[in-house]
Design a protein around this nucleic acid. Structure first.
Lengths: 114, 114
DNA sequence: CGGAATCCCTTCCGATACTG
DNA sequence: CAGTATCGGAAGGGATTCCG
């Protein structure tokens, strides 16, 4: 199932047609994607920098989540083939449209804890 | 370990202190909670009506999700002990504060599919 | 530096059957 | 009507090791 990597909107297939809320939650859901998008808002960040900014994430999970976000058209990946290699991640236009939503989730979370 | 049911903010414990975004995503995440909150926005809905309004959800999952939302202080449950029983679900004040976020996720999803 | 590969455990979720 | 109980598969996620 789930054919990934067919570019923009590669999100998990059947979900698409169904409920847009479910689809959005599927794209930004999971343990790490929210904070990744939040950090990348109006920012271009390198892999290890990103890893440093997200306490507790493993290299494996960071890679996986970035790959999925990329496949869903949320994140861009820019490689400079210098030595050592340099890879910069940033949000696509679609991705930037998500960041206010993530930001409001942060606000809500803070007042919820308060 | 995750002590549930200690009322408001019973969300899974350790998450709380960490990242508010992660916590919010934990509360509204998963396959069904988004649409449940969306339907309950400014609405009081009975169990079976809710089930009817959410295509594909099983009785078990609806119950589970409602219980978690209740434990997290998002959803209220009102029982009338008539025969047959009547149970109405609605959002708490905290829950209503989530509904604009869910709504913006719906909007984003629609334009993303567009 | 920025990954990929493997292993393994936990959580999520669906199907089905039963109940006050 | 509004649930519970039980089972089993699928997906999510952590630890560790290896690589160009």
């Amino acid at each position: 199932m789930g054919n990934r990597l067919n570019g923009f909107g590669a999100c998990s297939t059947e979900v698409k047609k169904a409920c847009p809320i479910e689809m959005t939650l599927h794209i930004i859901g999971g343990k790490w994607k929210g904070i990744i998008i939040d950090i990348l808002s109006n920012n271009s960040v390198r892999f290890n920098e990103l890893k440093r900014l997200i306490p507790g994430i493993s290299q494996r999970m960071l890679t996986l989540q970035l790959r999925e976000l990329e496949a869903d058209g949320i994140v861009k990946r820019k490689v400079e083939n210098t030595i050592p290699k340099k890879v910069e991640y940033s949000l696509t236009e679609q991705g930037e449209k998500l960041s206010p939503i993530i930001a409001s989730m942060r606000i809500w979370g803070i007042q919820y804890m308060g």
